[in-house]
Design a protein around this nucleic acid. Structure first.
Lengths: 345, 345
DNA sequence: GTGAAAGCGCTAACAC
DNA sequence: GTGTTAGCGCTTTCAC
């Protein structure tokens, strides 16, 4: 005989009866709220343990909070995002909050679905990582729920932001390469079509940072940008184009590690060697940049730190929805590996 | 002036009033339940659109379902899991169900926390991917909530399972290598310490499949297994050990792609070439196996198909909790790339 | 086919 | 400091 379907969940009423107190008392203990004596707390705690009681988030959510934080990651496949997530969960693990993630979103439509789903499920707050939705949409979400936006430049009075300084990151790359003696340093960028959003996206900031850094080193004439997408395929095609130039670049700054993978493939096919014939730099310092056979020089964005900040700001905003919005900008660092060297080395 | 905090959500009562019907009617339309005329449905639908109404999952959950499916992934960093997730969401996107993920779990304690959180949040069903919890715990979870376990061998009357045939996958690898002329084929395995769980885990099945395949090819004497962990570091150390043998193997079957990465690194350090001196095969056919500079021969588990099956079984179980449990076993395929060749080629 | 009304488990006023 | 009680937004009997 199977045990007859779930034998009714233990509720706050059971706990109250068992502890011989009111449900209010139990509720107060659960929320660490003011107005319960130490003896009462002890009694209630014991009853909770003895009965194995756990509060039902849905029921709590109907009056108060659900103690749930929603995190939206654009692409679970991008190995940079888990770092951010670790930072968030690490910051939250000693609280009563639980993190739940939306499944991969790769467009505005999916983002809409996921953010709505999270609002409908009574999340207490949201962390949106590199969202592509319009500013209006972000403002709307943030007006409904405490929200922190990660990895997107641009301010808003209703939500906080945490970003890495992409302009500085690009400058690190250019300076590193120039320091090795490179002059013909090309950049493979992700081309954004939407003009209103463009300036807020990291890829645009990286391209901008590249141009600025080249100029300030007096390399204006060597600026060479190929527009593709942040994919392996994009990097492959971009590199093909660069390698076909009459005067080949001696170094390539790929806007993302995955792009660098495509670049490396194209270089290999062309029978050239890295870093002998061409130095290659990526961005994000993802897991595979560190893989032995690849060993890619890359920019590290301190994802953990980004996540930690996002979680902290979110808790602060949940505590005080009216507080002025905060913008945090973190400095990236360069991780030198085996894909960069002196030109012709 | 800021707009005064959220101007109260539209509820079922508002919709009922606007459509001039009862709340019962609205509820029926929402759930596509029996007992509402076509005209009534139309009226209600229109009111819902006009008011921009969306049901609150928490409130629905108090009486009925939350229309939320929880998915637990052990490690978001493993690029194999997104495939499964895609299969799940793909199967569910035309339903009213929404998928939410637990954040990365890397141990029994975290799994406990996440599964409890999901139960407490009123999930309608759970998909547990490669859980490490005890059988008792899995049985308990499944007794509370419709559950499908993915990537773990072993049956249960209370939950359904979906697995790839790891024994067959290992055989594919051995046969491929033997077909190329290899005889000294070594295996780098992940060593499981818990004896009760061991047989259910994919790593054990792969090692077992390796041994069986070697034997059935008459290569009993060449069986050579190194025990480490499914990490890059594990692969690196395992390969070091293998390369130090008096009679080196000519091929290595790494139990996971990430292990193969470590093997490749060790081989490179030893000044040997792949596949010239050593053929290497991975498992999972992850994103980086396909990366140009790596191009790793690997076993593909058809993650999408696994996910699709899991979602289908879960929906069936939600519809009928009493139905007998089902075990689905899918056949993997081998993807040949550039890390395998004839010995000494 | 339709609607009134009773709860689901919890929190928050408000009495005591 | 403690308990009583009225809902939160929805689903679900059960009358009509």
């Amino acid at each position: 005989m199977e045990p007859p379907a779930s034998p009714r969940r233990v509720t706050i009423v059971d706990v109250a009866r068992h502890a011989q107190v009111s449900t209010t008392a139990v509720s107060k203990v659960l929320r660490n709220a003011y107005g319960a004596s130490p003896e009462m707390r002890a009694k209630v705690r014991r009853a909770i343990d003895e009965l194995g009681y756990r509060p039902l988030a849905a029921a709590r959510g109907m009056r108060g909070r659900t103690y749930t934080i929603g995190v939206m990651l654009p692409d679970i496949r991008n190995p940079f995002f888990p770092e951010i997530l670790d930072g968030i969960t690490g910051c939250l693990e000693d609280t009563d909050y639980q993190v739940l993630l939306g499944p991969g979103c790769n467009g505005e439509k999916e983002e809409l679905r996921v953010t709505e789903a999270m609002i409908d499920r009574g999340m207490d707050g949201l962390v949106l990582v590199a969202p592509v939705s319009s500013r209006d949409r972000l403002d709307h979400v943030a007006s409904v729920l405490p929200t922190v936006v990660v990895g997107r430049h641009g301010h808003s009075p209703v939500y906080d932001t945490v970003v890495a300084d992409d302009v500085a990151g690009a400058a690190l790359v250019v300076e590193h390469l120039a320091g090795l003696g490179h002059r013909r340093i090309a950049h493979v960028e992700h081309h954004e079509t939407d003009p209103t959003r463009t300036a807020e996206m990291p890829n645009a900031q990286r391209a901008d940072g590249y141009r600025r850094a080249m100029r300030s080193l007096g390399l204006d004439a060597e600026i060479d940008v190929v527009s593709t997408t942040y994919t392996q395929q994009g990097g492959y095609l971009g590199a093909k184009e660069l390698l076909a130039r009459a005067l080949r670049p001696t170094a390539v700054f790929a806007g993302a590690d995955i792009v660098a993978m495509g670049v490396l493939e194209a270089v290999g096919e062309a029978g050239l060697s890295v870093p002998g014939d061409l130095s290659v730099v990526g961005y994000d310092n993802t897991t595979f940049a560190a893989l032995g056979p690849i060993s890619l020089t890359s920019v590290d964005q301190a994802g953990r730190e980004i996540g930690r900040n996002a979680a902290r700001l979110l808790l602060e905003r949940i505590a005080d929805r009216g507080k002025p919005s905060v913008q945090v900008k973190l400095s990236p660092t360069l991780v030198e590996r085996r894909t960069t060297a002196r030109p012709g080395a």
